[in-house]
Design a protein around this nucleic acid. Structure first.
Lengths: 146, 146
DNA sequence: CCTTGTTAGTTACAAAAACAACTAATATCC
DNA sequence: GGATATTAGTTGTTTTTGTAACTAACAAGG
């Protein structure tokens, strides 16, 4: 039906990347969804705060490349759940500093444990060298500095 | 603020995969979105039909792991745009065979051109060996047979 | 045949994302 | 100082997705 061509859909990188990302997200989702009723943006925010410490919504947004409306709503949810506290910056009263509460810290540590396990189980299918190359390439593609 | 730990968010594969996928999607999106007003699922369906020839919605769904409701809506849109025609299977009148119209074929070829270019530009940042490893790993992660 | 079960695809409704418009605080420049 | 522009974050509205329930056609066992 179709003349021969050097294009194959299953080799197209954006397609492959999306399929792989969807698949891996699905595997990890159940941890934060079932156990804490979180959305993807919520755990990303939680992880950023847990991983890097106190931050403003703005900083999380620019680091994780998440739109500010998504952050705003995620922070509202996390605040409802008493996982983060918001304190106004006294020098610039527009922005507020987000910090994990002890409960938020506990959730973060629990999820981090599962994340680490999940990550390890993925890597187990490949050699150490392959995984290193994958990470390096994905960071490059994602626009994250090494 | 946070005790040392061997977990770093920017190394977590589901996170990296999603970031890389989003970034690369964004780059390609403008072609099918601006030029043809398509959604992601629509171009995927179009590409499947262009790449593999006539298929049913079911087949596309299982190949691309897209839920049937998304396929259904994408096919409806593509049909409105006169990019695909639907013909009932006479032996099993539940399913219908989807085929690209000449207009659909033209759109596919045009987008395929851009896809190829885009893919090439991505690969240019890496060595041939790295790209081969990346594709192999992503196919594995996505659950696509080599 | 005729009940029961399965499958292809659609539709309806709820959840989430995208986008635009908004408020309130600060910065700039005259 | 005061008009104007920017910035941090929020809210409202529209699209898009996810999920469940549905229709219509077929299949199988009795």
């Amino acid at each position: 039906m179709n003349e021969k061509d050097d294009f194959a859909l299953q080799d197209f990188l954006p397609y492959l990347l999306n399929r792989a990302a969807e698949e891996s997200s699905l595997g990890f989702q159940k941890h934060y969804k079932n156990r804490y009723g979180m959305l993807r943006t919520e755990w990303r925010v939680l992880f950023h705060l847990g991983n890097y410490g106190q931050m403003t919504a703005k900083e999380i947004g620019s680091r994780a490349k998440i739109h500010k409306t998504k952050i705003s709503r995620a922070v509202a949810k996390l605040s409802e759940k008493r996982f983060v506290t918001r304190t106004r910056d006294e020098n610039d009263r527009r922005s507020e500093h987000l910090t994990l509460t002890p409960a938020g810290e506990a959730a973060y540590k629990d999820l981090r444990e599962h994340a680490l396990e999940f990550d390890t189980s993925i890597c187990a299918r490949f050699t150490t060298g392959e995984v290193a190359i994958l990470r390096y390439m994905l960071r490059n593609l994602a626009g994250i500095e090494p």
